[in-house]
Amino acid sequence: MAKKVSISGIFATLALIFSYIERLIPLDIGVPGVKLGLSNIIVIIALYTLGTKYALGINVFRIFIGGLLFSGVFGIAYSLAGGLLSFAVMYGLKKTQLFSIVGVSMAGGVFHNIGQILMAALVISNVKIMLYMPVLIISGMITGILIGILSGNLIKPLKKILVWS
């Protein structure tokens, strides 16, 4: 228990660092909401190693603190919509045990973007922003798959280094 908490602390900090690194990488294709989702690596690893509760805690922590540090209140609203929807979908898919970590992460990437665009439509009170949906679905798939492969390969060595129980 205490070890899981301290590992959660390290993970939460890492997620924040990844959010910061992500801001340094220009991925600018002119569509709002397209990003790598680097800090999702941490959330997925936590989901597969620490369990749902800890992963959700890390996710919410990184959204609020990361939002305050890097993007402001509206940033938090977008990230929260995306982050929670994506987490719910990833948790559900993982529970079916039908999907690999890559499939789970891919769905997570797509639904993160869908959550964000729904929130954006709400914020600007205009559904026309849904026109970005195709780009956001495809980009979410690509980044989600990459993040899934990275996370899947990181879990094994991490399990050797860290003592979990």
Partner: peptide, 18 residues
Amino acid sequence: IMIKKADIVLAFILMLAG
């Protein structure tokens, strides 16, 4: 990483939606 059948099906569904 073992890619499962359901992953491929899901990828197709998402691509189709896109």
